[in-house]
Amino acid sequence: MDQNGCVITITSGKGGVGKSTATANISIGLAQAGHKVIAVDFDIGLRNLDMILGLENRIVYDVIDVMEGKCNLSQAIISHKKTKNLYFLPASQSKDKNVLDTAKVKELLEKLKAEFDYIIIDSPAGIEGGFEHAVFWADKALIVVTPEVSSIRDSDRVIGIIDSKSEKAKLGEELEKYVIINRINPVLVEKGDMLSTEDVLDMLALPLIGLVPEDPKVVSATNTGEPTIYMHSPSGEAYERISKRVLGETIEFPIFKVKSGFLGSFKRMLSK
């Protein structure tokens, strides 16, 4: 793909770790910085991103309709109500993830790269069908994890899939990958009941791009279609920092004091 737009896939090892929340907030952050951004929901069948962005009632056509030629791309793209420069391409709720076709995905992304600065893909979890299509043409991948053994283990597997099946891997290049650690609870980390940032990074061996604390406002944000980046809540501020790092700014990470006794036993578990 020769166009200038950058495709960033946001993915995870398993569902329920906050991937769609990350997609919505980062897309808003990039658009607020003056870039033309489109968030694309590839999580076919689930379709959470439209609700988080507050756009569920605006949907007429979806990404599958575009790929199957039932409508033009412009007919399916929805302008965000609150953030200028932000657009949305919804997933189909009724189709199966297996309807995604590699050539059609490439054609769609080429069109989007010609029109947008950033294409942010909300990917299915790596353990689900359709994941490979969401990462195949990506320029970068942001992997959302929670500080739990099961999440790290599944994400480790996803990293292996990305490193072997992306288009860049087929060309002998490495896809840029970064980790977002979500739902950090400093009290639990301090007590040794949650993996520390150092533990997670040691296991995944990828650069960190974001630390997002546990934030009770995320639930209400999802219900109201007002992502936390608008509220400047703890998670919203974290996503503002992540957006700036995506744009190449050097932003310091918040520091949590930790006492972790998990690492040795976790390494043994992962190696089994």
Rank of each mutant, 00 (worst) to 15 (best):
S151F: 07
A103T: 13
K170C: 01
D43E: 07
L201H: 05
I77W: 11
D117T: 06
E226T: 15
I38W: 12
I255E: 11
L112I: 12
I181L: 02
M1Y: 13
R241P: 12
L100R: 02
L211C: 02
I78K: 01
L204K: 07
I242Y: 14
I28D: 07
G13P: 08
D154K: 03
D139I: 00
M203S: 08
E240C: 01
N4C: 09
V158Y: 03
E176I: 10
G130N: 08
N185F: 07
Q93N: 13
H80Y: 11
K106M: 00
V105P: 08
D62T: 12
K84Q: 10
V158S: 04
A22P: 14
I159R: 15
K217G: 07
L211G: 07
G126D: 01
I38F: 08
D101G: 01
T250V: 10
V246L: 05
G225F: 14
I242D: 00
A39T: 04
E240D: 05
P207S: 11
E176K: 08
K111T: 15
M1I: 08
I242N: 06
K97T: 13
H133A: 00
F262C: 08
T23F: 02
D2T: 15
V158P: 03
N185Q: 13
A138E: 02
K104M: 02
V149T: 02
V189L: 05
G69C: 11
D154V: 07
D154N: 12
N72C: 04
E237V: 03
I28A: 01
E132R: 10
E226W: 11
G69N: 06
G5V: 06
A125T: 12
M194I: 03
G18H: 14
V17A: 10
A103D: 08
G248T: 00
L109T: 01
N98T: 13
M269E: 15
V40H: 14
V200H: 13
P124L: 09
L89W: 00
S271R: 15
V37F: 02
D96Q: 10
E107G: 11
D62M: 01
N48K: 03
F42V: 03
A39Q: 09
L109S: 09
V187N: 00
D65L: 04
V60I: 15
M231T: 07
S271Y: 06
R153L: 03
V258E: 14
S12E: 02
N182R: 05
T146P: 11
A141Y: 03
G129I: 05
I152S: 12
K95I: 01
D96W: 00
G54F: 11
E107P: 04
R268C: 09
N223L: 09
D101Q: 09
D202G: 07
